[in-house]
Design a protein around this nucleic acid. Sequence first.
RNA 1: GGACCGUUAGCUCAGCUGGCUAGAGCGCUCGCCUCACACGCGAGAGGUCACAAGUUCAAGUCUUGUACGGUCCA
Length: 859
Amino acid sequence: MNTGAPDKPSLEGLEQKWAAEWDQLGTFAFDRSATRDDVFSIDTPPPTVSGSLHMGHIFSYTHTDTIARYQRMTGKTVFYPMGWDDNGLPTERRVQNYFAVRCDPSLPYEEGFEPPARESLGPDGKKVKRQVSISRPNFIELCDELVALDEKVFEDLWRSLGLSVDWSLLYATIDERSRRASQRAFLRNLARGEAYQQEAPSLWDVTFQTAVAQAELTDKDMPGAYHKLRFSLPNGEDLLIDTTRPELLPACVAVVAHPDDERYTEFKGQTITTPVFDVEVPMVFHELADPEKGTGVAMICTFGDTTDVTWWRELNLPARAVIGRNGRFVEDAPEVMTPEAAERYGRMAGKTVFSGKEEIVTLLQESDALIGDIRPITHPVKFFEKGDKPLEIVTSRQWYIRNGGRERDLGEALIARGDEMQWHPPYMQSRYTNWVDGLNGDWLVSRQRFFGVPIPLWYELDESGEPRYDAPLSPDESLLPIDPSTDVPEGYTAEQRGVPGGFMADPDIMDTWATSSLTPQIAGKWEDDPDLFERVYPYDMRPQGHDIIRTWLFSTAVRSHFEEDAAPWRHACLSGWILDPDRKKMSKSVGNVVTPSGLLEQFGSDAVRYWAASGRPGTDTAFDEGQMKVGRRLAIKLLNASKFAMGMGDLRSALDAPVTEPLDQAMLARLALLTDDCTKAFDEFDYARALERTEMFFWAFTDDYIELVKNRAYGSRGEEAAASAHAALARALDTLLRLFAPFIPFATEEVWSWWREGSVHTSGWPDAGTLRASSGDADPGLLAVAGETLTELRRTKTEAKRSLRTEIVQATVTDTDDRIAQLNHVAADVAEAGVVGNLSTVGGGAALSVDAELAPEEA
RNA sequence: GGACCGUUAGCUCAGCUGGCUAGAGCGCUCGCCUCACACGCGAGAGGUCACAAGUUCAAGUCUUGUACGGUCCA
């Protein structure tokens, strides 16, 4: 543009101005003709659109953007996509409330469906409470509609933050491309034997009525209570057992003690009778029984916790499930019970776990089988991370993908994949390794929900209408994505759905991670555009939060391992949390969330980015408006200092002029060192270090160097000396704008436009070698010596409470011989900046000291 | 219970492979309208580097232990 600097430079409006310009010129467009070596590809985390963006997003996405901009400036074409995560529970709930609908996969697709509400309001403007059931394809259509709205808000915010993404690469995790990738990967897992189904006990959320995976668990401390129960030995004696879950007594299939526990080994092979229900169960032994816990004997129930599952499986015990999928006691008593016992059980049937516990206590008391008091304790209980009721364990048919949890070789291969990546910071790798190492089962990928990517399978129905699970019908890949609830398998007609001899759809959907784990494939248009995929995969970088190493990072590694026999990225970059000023993790529930758009408005995007970029990789960082003020100051300073430098001469024509003055050469030599530092830091993904170094140099540059050369630049010592200053200023400004560009893209672009062509963001990363050559290999130390001497001269004025314009008639600088030798090269500049009439230097001193005589104060 | 991270000025943090007198910003104190910037400029005060032991000529930095804080997993 080359407009020259305005009279009053300002940050106001730069975001809108440059975001529009970049968009129009395609400044950040990915060049797909580039070969893999010239590409820097980023596996961007797709934010959940049904939520709102918070400071954590601003923080971590800024980190990624600084890296993207750096890589772009080094000459790479950057594959920087954005995705919206609209697959999963949060979106399901938001679509339900917004449109007043509910997904029911058994319903047929309805063309031109109009939802009863928008923004929860009906056509009459009243809130619609009653939800209408609709088919899954209809539900997905509404999701698309809602996401389009949410997406607009997100995209606007990302643009105003200055993320340099190529918006033409946008995807959504429920869109057709994602569903196709997700189903294709699943079918290939199935074909290669990496996916399998099994009827097995699995963790079950009674609220959401779905199975959940190990990675989605969280422990919560909950109040519980020990109940001491009286069981009976064959000789009529009592066997006392402590339990926190007495309500599972009807599901008791054995009692267990440790094999070395001599108190109980004598009962080996004997039969124990349960209280209340009088069921005979075997006494068994297993190492997981803890002799220290309670009486050392535990009842094994199907199923109270995962240890019960282990015992049940390893000891070959029968199953007597009493808790149903709705979290209530089933109607029918276990078959082993006598009619009298079954009648007692009947008092629990249909009750929740909570009420069942109250009932069993009454039953135990009636049988005089509850010994002593109930002892309250607090103990960890497993929850689904999004749920608010404890998980139960329910036996059901589920799909699994192997993840090394049951096969040592696979687990080790996946751990080894971690070694193929560089982790930033490096210690994050141990979290990955620990997680894989601690897995105790495969990845449960099926979910009994309605909204999501369907498992793309059907089952034949035999003559009696029973499904044949062992031979699922799968679609041809070319037909994907499909919805088995509306599509029909090859060789069948729609009329055969649900009919004996016909077929039925697999009713389940896949875990959201089963789709998210394919973001490298989805963004890179795997199989849809193999040429593109080849240019971006494996990716250079996966940025993400450290809290989802066990889910997103690990599941992506699993998929890539199976599908590409490779690690999905070369660098895994983990960002930290944003903490509020009290060092608590910021969250909506605490009510301390500040809206990002408000802050961008208040401080300016460059300022907010400055704060974000000062948070080192992986480090939790306090939310700090003070840092944003500092960032704002920096951006404003950059505008003003640039304007000032440009006012000293024609910098554009001075860019290639020779630099002859020692101070100018020293400054450029110092700048070359800075460039080396920043390049190294960025190559190690340490954007914060690059920023810190650049900022440090910049303030010394404006406070000292510009002050030192301004008189000379205005011509106080002749044309040649002035020309040297102009040349050095031009090079310095040029370099600083580039070094700052990844962090404060708007202010740097603004200044760039005053005197240069094109965009600073595609101008190339500064080259230390060129700078060093123009410095004539000068001693960079001269700059520091000059600056420190200037500080001493200023101090004499400050201490005398005089203005800095005050003339020093005579000053004597004493310092070590070495430093005086350096100072003598730049003494003329120092004298001018300090307004010193007569400056003399004396060597042989121990340290820097200044003796100055100030001009007398005017009356 | 295990793993990992952290503890440096009132606050937020640098300090990389051990090396002159431990740095920055904010805040604080004092001063200055100096031809870009008062959204500014200059100067100053402020630290037993959590604690203990060890290695070394030399430790904020390496080793071990302890305490406290945090995170992840049991």
